[in-house]
Design a protein around this nucleic acid. Structure first.
Lengths: 223, 223
DNA sequence: GTCAATAATCTTGTATACAAAAATGGCCAG
DNA sequence: CTGGCCATTTTTGTATACAAGATTATTGAC
């Protein structure tokens, strides 16, 4: 608590955006946030500056900061790019994984299986992140890993929505199984293809996503 | 000059990093920068916060900001990811380009041809950027375009180094020609493959890059 | 009652002030 | 002469102050 308030504040505000406490388009009042976190406006502004550089917040001159509000098309494109990056990570992982990577992949997949079976979406959400991070690490490309983690974070609000769709967890974990097999078998092109289609939001899933975003906003209006 | 100093400051400092005025690893003193740009430390700090979120600057608690200094391996990985993203943009462009995109691609390629022929590396550097931006736009994926532009910016310092290598401009512009042909022919997979190898820094080019980075740092030490 | 213009208020953007941590330098012991 | 410890000096991180632009409320005209 003692040092570097703006780091903590950045994570705190980011978390608020991810969980939907701050909704897309909502204005982020500096004074209000300062009061809420019992700090002055200075570290709040610094946190907002960082979030704006990351692309979670939009700062318009003399107008203050808003939570970024992307049109569904843009969100779709984000998943599309994420798919390509994860596909790349999977392909590299298939070629480069070590014994430790095998272990990390398998065990995180086991955890996903368990939490999917229990139906606990929060647990699955967390374990799913572990699984994907295991792939990034296994790619042995530090920059690719950084990029994947950054984009993964940006997509968190929407990823959360997706899990609410019926049976998505079961489908997701089944796909994970095939991905693990491909990577461990060293089949780079198979891993690439599987990861791409695992991530990209196609057909019905896109409609579900748009519906989810809509309902999230409706919820906002109602309050 | 009147409004939003931190935007201008961010670009100014970023530019300093890109052109090599601020060398990798160099400490960025807030007070010094404030004096240099005749502002207080506040907007300087805000600019540095943004640059750190982008990944151009590293801020260590209570230790101040430094220009980020990546090991050559990491830089290589950055080009590798850039290659994959541009390949994706090229593939999409091949499928989706409009008449306006055709025109933009052709004319920016013409400009590259001209500046390469004249041997003006600065002009080529600029026209090359135009050309690649034309591909991003033709992909008709706003997010992919944003990501490409962001990464392209981050790679600027190193890209500049590459052009100094003998005949690189001629080779580059020849590759551009093939890329334009593939995109205009609507051959997505050909465009993908050509762009990937156009960007990725393989074999000798990687050695040249490492040597360039070394000499850049030597120059720093000497002063 | 509605609209527009102006005054009052609020919010942002920047400067300055101050406390606490890190870096520096000097001093003394060995 | 070297190395470690304490005092001094910088430098960072945060709070506060203030000016200028944006927003809201009020008043007056139609």
């Amino acid at each position: 608590m003692s040092e570097n308030a703006f780091y903590k504040l950045r994570d705190e505000i980011e978390n608020g955006i991810v969980t939907g406490e701050f909704e897309p388009g909502e204005r982020l009042d500096e004074t209000q946030l300062a009061a809420r976190f019992s700090v002055s406006r200075t570290p709040i502004r610094e946190a907002l500056m960082q979030l704006s550089a990351i692309g979670l917040v939009e700062i318009r001159p003399r107008r203050g900061a808003c939570v970024i509000d992307h049109p569904p098309q843009y969100v779709f494109e984000m998943f599309e790019v994420m798919g390509e990056l994860e596909a790349m990570a999977g392909a590299l992982a298939a070629r480069r994984h070590t014994d430790a990577d095998r272990e990390a992949l398998s065990s995180s997949h086991e955890r996903c299986l368990a939490s999917a079976a229990s139906g606990d979406t929060d647990a699955y959400y967390y374990d799913n992140e572990l699984f994907h991070h295991a792939i990034y690490s296994a790619s042995h490309s530090a920059f690719l890993k950084d990029q994947c983690i950054a984009l993964h974070r940006r997509l968190r609000p929407y990823r959360r929505l997706q899990l609410r769709v019926r049976n998505r967890m079961q489908t997701s974990v089944r796909e994970h199984g095939a991905i693990v097999d491909a990577i461990l078998a060293g089949d780079a092109e198979e891993a690439r293809a599987l990861l791409r289609s695992h991530i990209v939001v196609q057909g019905d899933r896109f409609s579900d996503l748009v519906a989810g975003i809509q309902s999230m906003k409706m919820q906002t209006r109602a309050r």
